[in-house]
Design a protein around this nucleic acid. Structure first.
Length: 270
DNA sequence: AACCCGCGCAACCGCGAAGGA
DNA sequence: ATCCTTCGCGGTTGCGCGGGT
């Protein structure tokens, strides 16, 4: 018996989501919370498979998502985390508030990977390209302890970064002066150094437990009618770790309306 | 102005894990 | 213990857009 499709393909729409579909999904999520992804499309009146709904919600519609390019700090964190975790995008994403695994994965493949190559660093092993890796090109084999990473990072990728980053930085910040670039490089290096040498921070980062500012969906008053939905949203919601306090506390619906306007849907009926 | 090409990102696909019956 | 269902993850695809020629 072959694998069952995630949904019956008949009458299931694929491709880009329309504003109307987004509106339906958002309305449903806000009023009902997440129940069962498989049943959701029918309940929400969508001709989509549950999987598609889940992806659309977690990667695009979730109200707490940050939009726009990753900041330099975020990018650096992604690189550091990738050096330790490999392509565990969801784990990496869980350390970055408001970022999705898909977003980070895309950013890695389109930006960071190229940058690292340009800087002479193998994006897979995080070793200098001209140096034979110690073992097979499996990032998970790089090291098994935080100590190894801490001691390894500055010697390899990060020192190399200092030497070679000028090119990349210049390309991105062409309007900056040389002095600005140097100070920015120093600053970056300093930040990286801080990260790499802070064992406590690393042990925290690598832990699979709590994450910075972790707050669950239960912290949010979500109801259109004032209902407090106390159930944590399982799946993506459960793993989703961080609501920036300044975006939640005291803002309630404002941020949600802002976000609605962000992608051009102004009438959600709430 | 038209065409081409590369890039970036949203979305899809398939597999494995987890959990319930 | 086994089977089945559901979910989540990582890899991949394909489309739209912008820049270059």
């Amino acid at each position: 018996m072959g694998r069952q499709p995630c949904c019956d393909k008949l009458g299931v729409k694929k491709g880009p989501w329309t504003a109307e579909e987004d509106r339906k999904l958002i309305n449903f999520m806000l009023t009902n919370g997440h129940c069962c992804w498989r049943a959701l499309p029918k309940l929400a009146g969508l001709r989509r498979c549950g999987k598609s709904c889940r992806l659309r919600w977690t990667n695009y519609l979730r109200p707490d998502l940050k939009r726009g390019l990753l900041s330099h700090d975020e990018e650096q964190l992604v690189i550091d985390l990738h050096a330790h975790l490999g392509n565990k995008w969801s784990k990496i994403a869980s350390r970055l508030p408001g970022r999705t695994d898909n977003e980070i994965k895309n950013h890695w493949n389109t930006h960071i990977k190229k940058k690292l190559v340009k800087m002479g660093i193998d994006p897979v092993t995080h070793q200098p390209l001209n140096q034979e890796p110690n073992s097979t090109a499996n990032p998970n084999n790089i090291s098994s302890t935080s100590d190894d990473i801490i001691s390894m990072e500055p010697k390899t990728s990060s020192t190399k970064k200092v030497e070679t980053r000028t090119g990349a930085t210049t390309e991105e910040e062409s309007s900056s002066t040389v002095t600005d670039q140097n100070s920015s490089i120093d600053n970056e290096n300093h930040q990286l150094g801080n990260i790499c040498n802070d064992e406590e921070l690393f042990s925290y980062l690598w832990s699979d437990e709590t994450t910075i500012g972790q707050a669950s969906w239960s912290d949010i008053n979500y109801g259109v009618d004032g209902t407090l939905y106390e159930d944590n949203i399982s799946g993506a919601g459960a793993d989703f770790p961080m609501w920036s306090p300044d975006r939640i506390n005291g803002k309630d619906w404002t941020f949600l309306m802002d976000y609605c306007q962000d992608f051009g849907v102004h009438d959600f009926g709430f």
